[in-house]
Simulated assay, not measured.
Amino acid sequence: MQSTTDERLYSLTAGHRLRQWRTGLTVAHPLARVSDVAREVGVTPSYISQIENTRCRCSRDLRARIAEALGVKVAEIVRESASV
């Protein structure tokens, strides 16, 4: 039960953290727009927006793909998300 609760928390807070990273990028950055992130990780822009706005959960696999696209480790997303 605890791991399920932790997974849900990590999923939701990772969405907030993704939005912070993406909106902190310069306009010229290749992942500055929702559509850019979506294309890079193979999902729709709507889905990325829903994740960022915590309307849906982000799977472990998708968090890994997003982290790879951003050039960070998944652990960084989880660890930094906890402080958001």
Results as ranks from 00 to 15, higher is better:
Ser3Cys: 08
Ser3Trp: 13
Ser3Leu: 14
Thr4Leu: 14
Thr5Val: 15
Asp6Asn: 12
Asp6Met: 12
Glu7His: 11
Arg8Cys: 02
Arg8Gln: 09
Tyr10Met: 09
Leu12Asn: 03
Leu12Thr: 04
Gly15Arg: 03
Gly15Ser: 03
Gly15His: 02
His16Leu: 15
Leu18Phe: 05
Arg19Glu: 09
Gln20Val: 13
Gln20Ala: 14
Gly24Glu: 08
Gly24Leu: 12
Gly24Gln: 08
Leu25Met: 14
Thr26Ile: 03
Thr26Pro: 10
Val27His: 10
Pro30Asp: 04
Pro30Gly: 06
Leu31Asn: 08
Leu31Ile: 02
Leu31Trp: 07
Leu31Ala: 06
Ala32Pro: 00
Val34Tyr: 11
Val34Cys: 10
Ser35Leu: 01
Val37Cys: 06
Val37Tyr: 05
Arg39Asp: 13
Glu40Gln: 14
Glu40Cys: 10
Glu40Met: 11
Val41Trp: 04
Gly42Asp: 06
Gly42Glu: 06
Val43Trp: 01
Val43Ala: 00
Val43Asp: 02
Val43Asn: 03
Val43Leu: 02
Thr44Trp: 05
Thr44Ala: 12
Thr44Arg: 08
Ser46Ile: 08
Ser46Asp: 11
Ser46Arg: 14
Ile48Asn: 03
Ile48Ala: 01
Ser49Phe: 08
Gln50Thr: 06
Ile51Arg: 02
Glu52Met: 07
Asn53Gly: 05
Asn53Ile: 01
Asn53His: 11
Thr54Lys: 08
Thr54His: 05
Arg55Val: 05
Arg55Asn: 12
Arg55Ala: 07
Cys56Pro: 00
Cys56Ser: 14
Cys56Phe: 00
Cys56Met: 09
Arg57His: 08
Cys58Ser: 09
Ser59Gln: 02
Ser59Lys: 04
Ser59Ile: 03
Arg60His: 11
Asp61Gln: 11
Asp61Phe: 08
Ala64Cys: 07
Arg65Val: 03
Arg65Gly: 00
Ile66Lys: 03
Ala67Asp: 05
Ala67Phe: 03
Ala67Val: 06
Ala69Phe: 03
Ala69Pro: 01
Leu70Glu: 03
Gly71Lys: 09
Val72Phe: 04
Lys73Phe: 05
Lys73Glu: 15
Val74Asn: 04
Glu76Asp: 13
Ile77His: 01
Glu80Val: 10
Ala82His: 13
Ala82Cys: 08
Ala82Phe: 12
Ser83Thr: 15
Ser83Gln: 13
Val84Ser: 10
